[in-house]
Design a protein around this nucleic acid. Structure first.
Length: 299
DNA sequence: CGAGTTTGACCGGCGC
DNA sequence: GCGCCGGTCAAACTCG
């Protein structure tokens, strides 16, 4: 990366190595439904800045919601602990959430119902907004390789495996391992028709996942670190006058697989950038410098 | 020792 | 109500 970028425990975007185009990524996969984005069309700096401004305000709303969620989660944990202490013969087995627990209470009373969070979808989504669609991906693998591992570049934690009725090969269940509140999941199962194919089903807000949770092993020297590995350097240095930085940023966005992904790429950039102390000042400085400067010649 | 995986139990939806 | 089934949880385990 040309300039030290940001790390605040949430997002990290490597503008130097395009995170959407790892050399081998999806090279042997085929999407059941094709993207329709314009691959050649990039976003202008103004477009990007407009999106940043718009998304910054949306990001603030999300941050408030997360804060509320965490607060209620802490309250719920405290109550559950006291509940368990009352058990006469506590077992080592977990207790499943019940309908009348605090979480459900939170959803019932606090959900904004504006289609902006997981609760909204489960609680009754607004009209005209589609629920989170799942996306199937077929990945060709070595038939002799019986593992249900798909190297898609993201950080997953396996939480279950099950043999289903219509397929003798087990189905593996994965959750996003980057953030506890991320609801993205994927299922991996060998195709019953073609053992050399793995059927990967992504569920949840996977666009968010596309840009957030890259594993460092797949995104070059930078990429996403796990929360425990986040460096303490939160220094922001954003120089849009730097032609290399500027071009890399535009290329990274323009090369995304679809317009939707481009938009969410920008979204996640905004998410990342707005978390940096002093970012706003850096952005103002960068933009004003960009405006004042003459057109930057292509190197 | 922490993070990730395994695996059996548990839960809820659905059909009968 | 009962059984089946897919999905999820979490203690135990493994690994680096």
């Amino acid at each position: 990366m040309e300039k030290a970028n940001l790390l605040n425990g949430h997002c990290f975007i490597d503008l130097n190595s395009n995170p959407m185009h790892s050399p081998n990524e999806y090279s042997n996969s085929e999407f059941e439904d094709s993207f329709t984005g314009d691959h050649e069309k990039g976003l202008s700096l103004k477009d990007t800045e407009d999106q940043l401004n718009r998304l910054k305000s949306e990001n603030k709303k999300l941050n408030d919601m997360v804060a509320n969620l965490l607060k209620n989660q802490n309250d719920s944990t405290r109550k559950q602990s006291s509940y368990e202490e009352e058990e006469e013969f506590p077992t080592r087995k977990r207790k499943r959430k019940r309908d009348d627990d605090d979480y459900s209470d939170f959803v019932e009373k606090k959900c904004c119902n504006q289609g902006c969070c997981e609760e909204c979808w489960s609680h009754g989504r607004p009209k005209g907004i589609k629920p989170n669609a799942s996306k199937k991906v077929l990945v060709r693998v070595d038939p002799s390789d019986m593992s249900l591992v798909v190297k898609d570049g993201y950080q997953w934690r396996k939480y279950g495996q099950k043999v289903t009725r219509d397929n003798p090969s087990p189905r593996a269940y994965y959750k996003c391992s980057f953030a506890p509140i991320c609801s993205v999941k994927k299922k991996v199962q060998r195709s019953v028709d073609d053992p050399s194919l793995l059927v990967v089903t992504y569920e949840g807000k996977h666009y968010h996942h596309y840009h957030h949770h890259r594993s460092s092993s797949q995104s070059g020297t930078a990429g996403v670190s796990s929360p425990g590995l986040i460096s303490g350097d939160h220094t922001a240095s954003l120089d849009l006058r730097d032609p290399i930085m500027h071009r890399n940023m535009q290329r990274a966005i323009a090369n995304c697989e679809s317009k939707e992904i481009q938009e969410f790429f920008v979204d996640q950039m905004a998410c990342s950038l707005t978390k940096i102390p002093g970012f706003t000042a850096a952005l103002v400085s960068a933009i004003s410098g960009r405006i004042l400067d003459e057109e930057i010649p292509e190197p």
